[in-house]
Design a binder for these strands. Structure first.
Lengths: 222, 222
DNA sequence: ACTTGTGAAAGTGTTCACAGCT
DNA sequence: AGCTGTGAACACTTTCACAAGT
């Protein structure tokens, strides 16, 4: 309806591989670096090389969504940035709530990287009364019991869960009941959520374990 | 040489799919929850159901590394925990350095979840003189210039990079020069590292973008 | 001359379905 | 009966290699 491409150019987004979408984010990130470095255009080869992918992979990934390059020339960085943001949905502002204002929650409230990609944390919540009714990192902190009300008033669509594992499912349930469409979960548990709510989990200990495995298994003799 | 399994039981760890290793971490996490809930044993079906995987997937993943279950019974939770920790390499302590003690760095220093999996942050580094020569979250903070010395003295093997994007490559270079074997990078850049150093990247904005895409593309009418 | 976009081939990961053990 | 471990079938993803566009 909006971005001027024919239906037949692109595939139903629902059956694009998850891996493709995550590379899209990396392309976007790299394109910003390229523009900052003064490049107006790039090619699949260059983009891939900087990220450790093949040129074919880059072209194939983009081909899921349309025709963004010019044969013989490559891709215009600013144009491709716009296209990828349109695909990811980050070409508009997303209003976000943070649940849990402990160590990690506070750090995320102060993190500038979200705002630059269109994510605006407009409210935070915590059970601890000593933290509520003031601002942290420029974001007002409310009592957990106000969640449903604030989420509706502020038209919040996404929730970040940064509470301990033991209360993460509860926090998520409240967010779902309040009507958010997606949850980013930092607690080390697998959330049980209804199908209509999207979710992504980030577990820092898990990531360290991946690293650990790959270190422990670097080229052992033959 | 150490854990008592025949060579032929398991595959060369270097050609185990990345996805399998990341699920291993989730199995481990879930097994801890099961034990806390009083279960001594579990089955591939139950484990998979709680994480959203098929029973066959769970069995196949574990089969890369050996025979851990008993037909007709399932898996003993404590035994499987031990086995997975052995595979991941988290059955011993890993000494870790943190580079960058801003918002995110400080939050991670205070995060208890690392210690419980065997990761011990023993030193932190920052350019900001006002932060050095004191403790944060029980961890001593040094000047960046002391990095090589401290990493060697403290026999540090892993580095966490939590500095801004603009200085992340530099921080990583210093860690590599000091001899760390792996890097977990929180900065939104792709690091260029020598092959003998393992690395994993975690970009919070990227994760939010994944969520965003999946929300924006939830079942649009046929 | 250079680079895209894409069929076809190759490679990788997942699921099925069942023999075999408890 | 119930569950594991695994060969074989299937599905998915990546790479190759080249026709077509600038």
């Amino acid at each position: 309806m909006s971005s001027g491409r024919r239906k037949s150019d692109s595939v139903d987004p629902k059956d694009v591989p998850k891996a493709v979408v995550s590379r899209l984010s990396l392309y976007l990130r790299e394109l910003h670096h390229l523009i900052a470095a003064g490049h107006a255009t790039t090619s699949s080869g260059r983009l891939g090389q900087q990220l450790g992918f093949s040129d074919a992979q880059v072209r194939r990934d983009l081909a899921y969504f349309g025709h963004f390059g010019q044969p013989g020339v490559g891709y215009r960085c600013d144009e491709l940035i716009g296209a990828i943001r349109g695909i990811l949905g980050t070409d508009r502002e997303w209003r976000v709530a943070m649940v849990g204002v402990g160590n990690l929650g506070q750090a995320l409230l102060g993190y500038r990287g979200f705002a630059s990609q269109g994510f605006k944390i407009v409210a935070a919540f915590d059970v601890d009364q000593s933290k509520t009714n003031r601002q942290l990192g420029g974001v007002p902190v409310f009592a957990l019991d106000d969640l449903a009300q604030v989420v509706q008033d502020q038209r919040i669509e996404l929730g970040l869960v940064a509470v301990p594992a033991s209360t993460a499912q509860l926090a998520a349930d409240r967010l779902v009941a309040a009507g958010v469409a997606g949850i980013l979960n930092f607690a080390p548990v697998t959330l049980n959520l209804p199908d209509h709510v999207s979710h992504v989990g980030v577990d820092l200990a898990t990531e360290l374990e991946q690293l650990c495995f790959s270190v422990a298994n670097r080229s052992s003799g033959t």
